[in-house]
Structures are given as C-alpha cells and as structure tokens.
Amino acid sequence: MAESRKPVISVHDLAKNYGELKVLRKIDMDIYKGEVVSVIGPSGSGKSTFLRCLNYLEELTSGEIDIGGVSLKGIDEDKHNKKLNEKAAKVIRKNVGMVFQQFNLWPHKTVLENVMECPVQVKKANKEETKKKAMELLARVGMDGKADAYPTQLSGGQQQRVAIARTLAMEPEVILFDEPTSALDPEFVGEVLNVMKDLAQAGMTMIVVTHEMGFAAEVANRVCFMDGGYVIEDGTPEEVFKHPKSDRAKQFFSKILNV
C-alpha cells in the first residue's frame, strides 16, 4: 500500500455502545482508493455495526470517522456532535453506498424506477439521461431484461444485482456490502459474487462483510478479522488466512475452513 496516499475513509478510536453493551471498542482503520476489504469474524463481533457507523445508520459513541473531508464524531465527547453528524451524513452518504443482506429494494417501484429514484430525486439529475445510465447499469449487472419487473417478481440473486445497480447509480466512491449473499439460495450466490468481482476489477473501493471465505481470499486485497468489537487481524488474505497471529482467528478459521 502506498502510505503517502490519502485514505478515502479514516477511522480513529471508534467505539459504539448499545446501552451497557460495548459492541465496538476501539477501531482504527484507514481505507484507500481501490482497496477491496473483506471484514470477517464470528456472529455478534460487530461487523454490521461497524459498516453501519460508516454511513451513519448508527450513532457513534466515541471516536471519529473521516470521509471525503467531513467527519462523524462520537456523541459521548460532545452531545452537539449529533447535529453536526446529521449534516456530515448528507455529504458522506453521497460518497458511500450500501448494499444490504435483505436487498431492501422498494417493492412499489419497478426495477428501473428503483435505480432511477435517487439520481432524479436526490441529485436532481435529468430524467432522460438518468434513464439511459440506469439501463447501462442494469446491463452491467445483467438485469436490463427485467427493467419493468417489480422486485417481488425476481429471485434473490436478481434483486441483489438490482440493488447493486441502484447503489452504483449514485456514483459512490466506496460501497459497503453487509453480507450481500447470506440471504440467497446457494444457486444464486455465484451471480452476485461475479458482479462484485467485476466491480473490484473496475477499481471500486469496497468494504465487504462476508462469510464467503472464497471471495475474501480471491477478490479482496485486504482482510480484517473482527472479534469482540476489535479488529484483531488486518492484512492481505495470504497473511490473515495462512498465518493468523491471534489464537482467536486460528480457532475461527479451523472451524470454518474444515467444515
């Protein structure tokens, strides 16, 4: 990694509590342009919470996240940060897209309308141009044939590919994926991973929470292992999978990889 470059996302001392429960304890992480970071770890280790802090779907308890020149700050340090965070989130969400485990397409809108909604409504982009771009994006994820279908008429894999196109339509700098294939029947996992692989090859910066170790090993150029609210391994797939430093990671991989 060229350390001289400025990170796209910079996380300092991030902590997140739900009441008494300390979900994230102290996260420090810089993410650079074009990196594909796989976040792995046992259930409940805080992976989703970490992602959701990055685009402010969750309030930060303490610490700081810098994205594209604006920052989110923990509200424990100063209650007023909440108002500032809400403002910052508007900017951050323009740069950061998110793809959800449950797709969360809007069921009352067609596939094309799902993709066009935010460019037109949020960016106030021209409708005709947006439509053309949306069709290109749908073609990119192999869904241009279903532009007029409603989400409920699609398989899970198709819905997730549309969800990716919807996110791309806002031209984000970074895309967060929270277990994008976990809700899919096994037969549909491959088609979604392939779309993500194409994105990675096209240079998109991605943070992917996943249980797909194959994807992490093959596509990611960085793997972070989380446990108990800490990132306890952070390195190339080779380093983390083959030579984990911590016993926790070793245990986790022996369980997962031997099944």
């Binding site: 685009n55 779907l57 508007k90 969400r93 323009k94 897209g97 998110m98 959800f100 449950q102 969360n104 397409l105 809007w106 069921p107 009352h108 909604e117 935010c118 409504q121 949020v122 969800a163 919807r166 996110t167 806002m170």
Partner: peptide
C-alpha cells in the same frame, strides 16, 4: 426497517423517504 435504511443510505432526506418510499407502501 430496511426500507428506511436503504432510503437514508441512498442519500434521501427523512421527508423524501416518507413521501416517496414509506407512505406509498
């Protein structure tokens, strides 16, 4: 909840989310 979150994550305001995504459903 995912319907709200997808809208917010895509940059929609609370008002837009309500009027364009939540109320119609």
């Amino acid at each position: 909840k995912g319907q709200f979150e997808a809208s917010y994550a895509m940059g929609m305001s609370r008002f837009k989310t309500m009027v364009r995504i939540i109320f119609p459903q």
